[in-house]
């Protein structure tokens, strides 16, 4: 979700198979660069595999180029990594969110084979996608300051995951500002 010179990315913490909850501390987002995060929903094994592959590629890029990925470049890297597996895809839907070198927000969501969409407002993936989009549309407004953005994305993820029986069990929110990344954990219903 984008704000005024800031972006926020949030996920729930549940990891489960069908209706069996296996873990309540499963992070679905990781920090790619100082000002960029990747969030991945989908098949957990692919989520972990991809996180490791992206970490490797991000480190290689940093060593070769002696600079960090711009969010748009990172999104293209994620997209082409997924399209390499066009006919045996990773079952994931990633979101890339970050600030570019001018601190403008950048948000990108894509499908499992890397067909990407850049959004100026917000992107959502995962089982409560409908609920997230409905709530985002109603609560979000342009040019939110970091604290307002935090409140908006937190209300959104909690309302949406409370209506999805396979999501929830706590949530994590990262708000990325030019100066720092603010990470907060939300307590939600644990059922």
């Amino acid at each position: 979700m984008s704000g005024k010179n800031c972006v926020a990315i949030a996920s729930d913490k549940r990891f489960g198979v069908k209706y069996l909850t296996i873990s309540m501390e499963f992070p679905k987002m990781f920090q790619a660069t100082d000002k960029t995060f990747i969030g991945i929903s989908g098949l957990a094994t692919d989520v972990q595999t991809l996180m490791e592959r992206f970490r490797f590629k991000i480190n290689m890029y940093r060593m070769n180029e002696e600079r960090d990925f711009e969010p748009i470049t990172l999104a293209n890297m994620v997209s082409s990594t997924l399209y390499e597996r066009r006919f045996s895809p990773y079952f994931v839907e990633p979101i890339v969110a970050g600030l570019d070198k001018n601190n403008n927000p950048y948000i990108n969501g894509m499908d499992l084979i890397g067909c990407s969409t850049t959004a100026c407002d917000f992107a959502a993936t995962g089982t409560p996608e409908d609920q997230l989009y409905g709530t985002c549309e109603a609560l979000w407004e342009p040019n939110l300051e970091p604290e307002e953005l935090f409140e908006t994305i937190s209300q959104t993820i909690m309302s949406a995951t409370n209506r999805d029986c396979v999501s929830g069990w706590g949530a994590v929110v990262h708000v990325i500002t030019p100066e720092r990344v603010i990470t907060r954990t939300l307590k939600t219903r644990m059922d």
Partner: peptide
């Protein structure tokens, strides 16, 4: 058809279900 989009918003605005509300 739009029930799944609206219901969480109504929870948020009417029930005030989330602890932050």
């Amino acid at each position: 058809s739009g029930g799944s989009l609206i219901q969480p918003f109504l929870d948020n605005q009417i029930y005030r279900k989330t602890p932050l509300g």
